[in-house]
Design a protein around this nucleic acid. Structure first.
Length: 406
DNA sequence: AAAACGGGGGT
DNA sequence: ACCCCAGTTTT
């Protein structure tokens, strides 16, 4: 961080509404960096201009996305869950497949979790799928299959936080509810020159106050989507395309030449590495897969048993607890590296061909609950991308294309 | 307030 | 490498 940026952040960190001679408000006024532009007043002409310009801009340039072709709250909700921490382009094929397989919330509620996770395979953050499945049952049983139509009831559904409640309420139900996601945080931090770390409690409070101030009575869902669309396509993290921005004349960061210095972000910590060993047992086209207990990492997904160890030798005892008898001769076939948000996994992959008759019914140790011989390409259960990499590496060359394909 | 929780695309 | 994505839940 540059010295000047640090100084300005500090200077503007806390400006009470009273000190600025304004009426007390139910939310905090976003911190401002310099007394250059007009004070930001709720319901001001500037707010109105921003909403109007963004709405018109959105009508002109909005991408044609699958979830923008429907008003079905279930479909909107599904899209919002899938889009959590996940890019639009990644979500599109998953959204289409999922909706084809489970067209209504009732279909989802009646489904097996393994089926749901199968359709989620590769998308990541699998807890979303598990919790969404629970929420679908809640909607079916408690709300009679109709989605709750206000932000508070939506927020009460498992897996629905402040963002998703605001999104479904405004987009599916035309309610004047604000929302703040990563895109909106960036856009508003620049538009209002908010100097707080956007991930801090203070920063979030300022952002939600700004979002609540701006969202118009007329077509709030369009406005919220416009804010996100702007962040995704114009007001980008680096090298924002301000010349193409419909509100560049109203942006305080730009007026102050600080658009590249905002938003303020706290430094991230580095991710530790973990060494693991995976054992892949093949019997024809079937492979021995164990199901991970629900709740933790890759919860509810199936994979070749994998344990934390520095070498195959060292792994044998723990692999036995995952249902791999020690008498089986495993041969190393390579390594797989997989990056998660909080861990860097380095997996040594070992394999063996075994007769399918070898079906130990040993009680499996955590994190596995049970195991079975499955065709990994049958799409019957959830399989992580990491597991697919491991399967791909350990299968005969002729079969690799099959396993890799989704 | 911090950590857990996937995977991938852009630079 | 590093950033960060239409975030939420748990600790």
């Amino acid at each position: 961080m540059s010295p000047s940026r640090k100084a300005s952040a500090k200077a503007s960190a806390k400006v009470s509404t009273k000190a600025r001679g304004q009426i007390a408000l139910p939310f905090e006024i976003p911190a401002r960096s310099a007394p250059l532009a007009e004070p930001i007043v709720p319901g001001s002409e500037r707010d109105h201009e921003i909403a109007t310009a963004l709405g018109a801009w959105f009508d002109a340039v909005a991408r044609d996305l699958p979830w923008r072709r429907t008003r079905d709250p279930y479909a909107i909700w599904l899209s919002e869950i899938m889009l959590q921490q996940t890019r639009v382009d990644t979500v599109i094929p998953y959204f289409d497949r999922f909706l084809s397989r489970f067209p209504t919330v009732g279909d989802l509620a009646r489904a097996d979790l393994d089926q749901v996770l199968s359709l989620w395979s590769g998308l990541g953050y699998y807890r979303r799928a598990r919790i969404m499945h629970l929420a679908a049952r809640e909607v079916t049983e408690r709300h009679g299959g109709a989605f709750p139509g206000d932000a508070q009831a939506l927020r009460a559904l498992p897996g629905v936080g402040a963002y998703t409640a605001g999104a479904v309420a405004s987009i599916a139900f035309d309610l004047r509810e604000p929302l703040v996601d990563g895109n909106v945080a960036r856009v508003l931090s620049r538009l209002d020159a908010i100097d707080n770390d956007i991930r801090s409690t203070t920063g979030q409070r300022a952002l939600w106050a700004a979002a609540a101030r701006l969202v118009p009575e007329a077509r709030p869902g369009r406005f919220n989507q416009a804010l996100m669309e702007l962040g995704a396509t114009v007001c980008t993290p680096r090298a924002p395309r301000c010349t193409a921005c419909p509100v560049n004349g109203l942006c305080i960061a730009r007026a102050e030449g600080r658009e590249e210095d905002l938003p303020v972000l706290a430094p991230k910590r580095k991710v530790p590495s973990v060494r693991m060993v995976a054992a892949v047992l093949w019997a024809g086209h079937r492979v021995y897969l164990a199901r991970r207990t629900e709740g933790g990492l890759f919860g509810g997904l199936w994979e070749p048993p994998m344990v934390e160890a520095d070498s195959l030798d060292e792994a044998r005892t723990s692999l036995a607890e995952a249902g791999i008898p020690e008498r089986i001769v495993l041969r190393e076939v390579g390594r797989v590296r997989h990056i998660l948000t909080h861990r860097r996994l380095e997996v040594t992959v070992a394999r063996a061909e075994v007769p399918a008759a070898l079906r130990g019914r040993a009680k499996l140790a955590s994190p596995y609950e049970r195991a079975s011989w499955l065709d990994p390409d049958a799409n019957e259960v959830g399989v992580s991308r990491l597991a697919r990499k491991i399967l791909s590496m350990s299968s005969p060359p002729a079969a690799r294309a099959e396993v890799t394909r989704r």
